[in-house]
Structures are given as structure tokens and as C-alpha cells.
């Protein structure tokens, strides 16, 4: 396996034996494996891929970060600004929605959107479907998904106290949110 930079359309020299599964940046056509990006192919376990340092549109199972822009009783609208750890250019956010049945895994019928999100909250979620023409469908129905950053009515950054409440350090008031479990706990 040479480590030279490949160009789109250039055949990839593969070692003899079982062929690897192809990841991003490579495709197979007419029995040849070729590159579709400029870059050096590398093995990530059994997968051979050219790593993509550029931001790309969300696909199903992408982990996204976004800001809540609009609330309605049925859904919260989110402007997605980070896809799989890669920030999108400013002004090129994708629109996503969290429907009320996708907020949490249990007691879905008791969800009230206003007690889970507020405008301006930064949320972490995964994409469950490409959705309709306008928006991607996002779910936060997992312990590690939900609000990761929120400011209180007093304007201070709040800290989570349980999976559905956050406390303002300035006033001590409790506000309701669907919190993401912090990673280091």
C-alpha cells in the first residue's frame, strides 16, 4: 500500500487477498477501486477510506449540534451548525426538527416541548431520518443527548441537576430542560 496522494478517478493499488470495505472517498466501478476525493487512503480497522476534512450534509445516525430557533407544541426547530464534529460554514446551517415523540424514549405522550427546550439552547442529537423537503428529523431520546448548553432567564449559563432540570447559579431557580448526560460522569 503506497501512501501517495490520490486524485479523483485514480485507481487504488490494493494488496492481494480479501478486499477491504470501502469507506468515504472511494468507490468501486467495473472491478476497479478508485478514489473520489483528493487525499491519501488509510485503513480505519477493516475499512479503507480517504478522510474527509470538509463539512458535509447530515445523514442518518450523524451526531449533530445545533441551536433551537423556534418552538411549537408539536416540535422544536433546530439550526444544525456542527455535523459529526465538523463545523459548517457560517450561514450554511441545515434545518432540523425534534418532534415531541423524539424528545425522550419513555412517556412520549407526556412530553411538552416548552418544558424540554427553550430558544437559544444548544442541543446534541442524532439524525433519524432525512425528513421532508425542509428539515432533517433529529432525536434526543438517549441519555447522552439533549440540551448541552442553556442560559437562564437571568442570563447565566445553567448547570444540569437532573436529566430534566437545570439550575441557574445566579438566582438558584430551577428550569426544566431535557438535559444530555455530561460525558465525564
Amino acid at each position: 500500500m503506497t501512501s501517495e496522494t490520490l486524485l479523483p478517478g485514480q485507481p487504488v493499488a490494493l494488496p492481494l487477498g480479501p478486499s477491504p470495505t470501502l469507506g468515504a472517498g472511494l468507490y468501486a466501478k467495473d472491478g476497479h477501486v478508485r478514489a473520489s476525493l483528493v487525499g491519501v487512503p488509510r485503513y480505519e480497522g477493516p475499512t479503507l477510506a480517504i478522510s474527509r476534512a470538509r463539512p458535509h450534509p447530515p445523514t442518518t445516525n450523524s451526531v449533530v449540534l445545533g441551536v433551537v430557533t423556534r418552538l411549537s407544541p408539536l416540535q422544536a426547530t433546530v439550526a444544525i451548525s456542527v455535523v459529526d464534529g465538523l463545523p459548517l460554514p457560517a450561514g450554511e446551517e441545515f434545518t432540523g426538527v425534534i418532534r415531541s415523540q423524539d424528545v425522550r424514549a419513555t412517556e412520549k405522550d407526556k412530553v411538552r416541548i416548552g418544558e424540554c427546550f427553550r430558544g437559544g439552547d444548544v442541543i446534541k442529537g442524532t439524525v433519524i431520518s432525512l425528513g421532508d423537503a425542509r428539515s432533517y428529523y433529529i432525536t434526543t431520546a438517549r441519555n447522552d443527548l439533549g440540551v448541552i448548553f442553556a442560559t437562564s432567564e437571568a442570563g447565566a449559563t445553567m448547570e444540569p441537576v437532573s436529566w430534566q432540570a437545570m439550575r441557574c447559579p445566579r438566582t438558584g431557580r430551577i428550569e426544566k430542560r431535557k438535559c444530555a448526560k455530561p460525558e465525564n460522569l
Binding site: P8, G9, R34, S36, V38
Partner: peptide, 8 residues
Amino acid sequence: AGIEMLGL
């Protein structure tokens, strides 16, 4: 731009 394509 890093957009996947079959060839140049």
C-alpha cells in the same frame, strides 16, 4: 472543495 466525484 472535497466533493466526491468519479473523476476529473
